[in-house]
Amino acid sequence: MTDQSTATEPSGPGGPPPARARFSPRKRQQISRAVQYVVLVVAAIAVVLFVDWASLAQNFAKPEVARETLPELFTIALKNTLIYSIGGFVFAFLIGLVLALMRLSSVRPYRWLSLAYIEVFRGLPALLIFLMILFLPLALPGFEVPGGLYGQGILGLTIVGSAYMAETLRAGLQAVPKGQMEAARSLGMSYSRAMITIIIPQAVRIVIPPTTNQFVSLLKDSSLVLFLGVSGEYVELTKFGNDLASTYANATPILVVGVTYLLVTIPLGYLAARLEKRQGKGR
């Protein structure tokens, strides 16, 4: 590479001027930026010219169809999405906590069991887990998931979420300084007492930001409930949008449902980021 400073340096006296780059770094940066803007403008013009806006609006943003989604969009679909994902989150959290404690246990088989569960269910696609639940009655005749369709949906999301939650909580538990357990034990608390009153509350605080993100991802995965064959009062947002879109042969409900997801996920994302920042400062 040629010397960066050649552009500003006056050529030395006497000898031939040092080899100069054709453009100075500043010049090169300007050109690169200009090219980027040109590409952007060309792309925008192409989109405007080649997209059939009228037909797109007809298909994705038809006010009459959008109106048809109300009020069920909120009273049924969003409500069910929240039931599935909050339910799944709560159980995933509890099972994740048990798995995390097993992972840190002094009993080796517990550590193995927990590790096996985490590795298996973290490695499987969420859809596959829902399909397994769908076929569960075939594998175990007479067995029924308690809570009907809600129960099945929540079970699926619990399995999907718990493996990740276990890893997050384990990291949280390990992030609590060792001195906390020692102080608690030196006050006469048993191991489990110290875990419950001293360690777990601090670990939970530490993992709030990452678990908020995990809730967002469970909320999105709740769309997979679709594959359990839910209908009527059990539909969640995606199934709801899909059904209406077929009914009206129009994609507007899909767009409406998408916006509804974002109404929940974007604020939660910001909340997680803020909590993370606050924690970074507070500790």
């Binding site: 300084p177 001195g179 906390q180 020692e182 102080a183 608690a184 001293i198 601090q202």
Partner: peptide
């Protein structure tokens, strides 16, 4: 303890 170890 040297590091106090209060429960924060």
């Amino acid at each position: 303890f040297q590091q106090f170890n209060l429960f924060p």
